[in-house]
Amino acid sequence: MWTTKGLTRGILTTPYPRSRPAEPGARPARPVATPTSEAGPAAVGVCPTGALEARGDQVAVDLGRCIDCQRCRRGDAKMEWADTGQAALHLSPADLPGRAFRHSLHVRVVDAGDGGETLRELKQLTSPYYAVHRLGIFFTPTPRDADVLLVVGPVTQGTRQALLDTYEAMPEPKWVMAVGSTAVTGVPFGPSFTTAAGLGDVLPVDVVVPGNPPPPLAILDGLLSLMGRMSAEELLS
């Protein structure tokens, strides 16, 4: 009986990455590099995590340190905010899995201290809006089947060993993804006595997806890039 009821809303699934429709609210704006004259002289100082930096006559943004606090948008600072487009970054484009994994990628998710919001965005990837299995992306509960270790959270003292054990248990070749600014740099929690400064402290990272949390489409970019479905140029543009 549920099958027919499930059809009542028609097709929700995004055509992304084939085309890039306007889906308001799916991928909210992020701060982008802004001329200092517009951003205001105080801009760099308002950022709680040091994501803003004066570079020449611009205020540049290190998205990996940005926790989406909105301060450089709504207070005295006036940074420009825009949809930054492709949101994932390769750290080692040379040895990405690429075309061999074009049609299927198995992902093991590990929570290393996330507040819950990044896990929810990952979960949304399986909702009809994104339906990532249509692209051959599967979340697997067993490390032995996994090609990719996807980590959220700053890596706490209590999750570090289980994280390393999971990595060890995965067969070669394997790749590591840090999803969320917290996993990328540890902000705003670490480094501290109980958290690392992000996943890079603990494991070699191949792809980072900044954002607090990164929306499902940004995480999807990161996964697609691993599959060789998006060129590095496309990602970095």
Binding site: D68, R120, Q124, P213, P215
Partner: peptide, 29 residues
């Protein structure tokens, strides 16, 4: 599975609503 999918679509509707009206899907900031 079917009602699960229907419900997660509703979650997405509200996350996008938050993204539109507040600039953040989880209402941070």
């Amino acid at each position: 599975q079917v009602p699960t999918a229907m419900l997660s679509s509703l979650v997405e509707d509200l996350l996008r609503l938050s993204g539109r009206v507040a600039g953040h899907r989880y209402l941070f900031g």
